[in-house]
Simulated scan of single mutants.
Amino acid sequence: MNNARASDPITSVIAGERAVLFARYHNVRILAALDDEKSLTAGEIARITGLSVEQVCRRLPELQARGQVQVVQFEGEDLLRNGYRVWEAV
Score class of each variant (00 low, 15 high):
Pro9Trp: 08
Ala65Phe: 07
Ala4Met: 04
Phe74Ala: 07
Val69Leu: 06
Ala42Leu: 08
Ser12Lys: 14
Ser39Asn: 10
Arg59Ser: 11
Asn3Met: 02
Ile10Gly: 04
Gly67Phe: 08
Gln55Asn: 12
Ala23His: 09
Arg47Trp: 02
Asn82His: 14
Ile48Tyr: 02
Glu77Trp: 11
Ile10Asp: 09
Leu34Tyr: 08
Val13Asn: 10
Asp35Ser: 12
Leu79Lys: 15
Ile14Lys: 13
Leu80Asp: 04
Ala19Leu: 09
Val71Asn: 02
Glu77His: 15
Thr41Gln: 04
Ala4Thr: 06
Cys57Ala: 03
Gly76Ser: 08
Asn27Trp: 06
Gln70Ser: 12
Leu51Val: 08
Val13Glu: 15
Ser7Trp: 06
Lys38Leu: 02
Tyr25Met: 12
Leu31Ser: 09
Arg81Cys: 06
Ile14Cys: 09
Ile10Leu: 15
His26Asn: 09
Arg59His: 02
Gln55Ser: 13
Arg18Gly: 12
Ala89Cys: 02
Glu54Pro: 00
Tyr25Cys: 06
Val86Glu: 04
Pro61Thr: 10
Leu40Arg: 09
Arg47Cys: 01
Gln68Ala: 03
Val13Met: 14
Arg81Pro: 07
Ile48Cys: 00
Glu62Leu: 07
Phe74Asp: 11
Arg85Thr: 11
Gln73Pro: 05
Leu31Arg: 15
Ile10Ser: 06
Arg85Gly: 02
Arg29Thr: 10
Leu63Ile: 08
Glu37Leu: 01
Pro61Asp: 07
Glu17Phe: 07
Leu40Ile: 03
Val90Ala: 12
Leu31Met: 15
Ser12His: 12
Phe74Arg: 11
Ala6Asn: 03
Val28Gly: 01
Ala15Met: 13
Phe74Val: 14
Val86Phe: 05
Arg29Gly: 03
Thr41Asn: 07
Ser7Asp: 11
Cys57Leu: 02
Glu88Ser: 10
Gly76Met: 09
Phe74Ile: 12
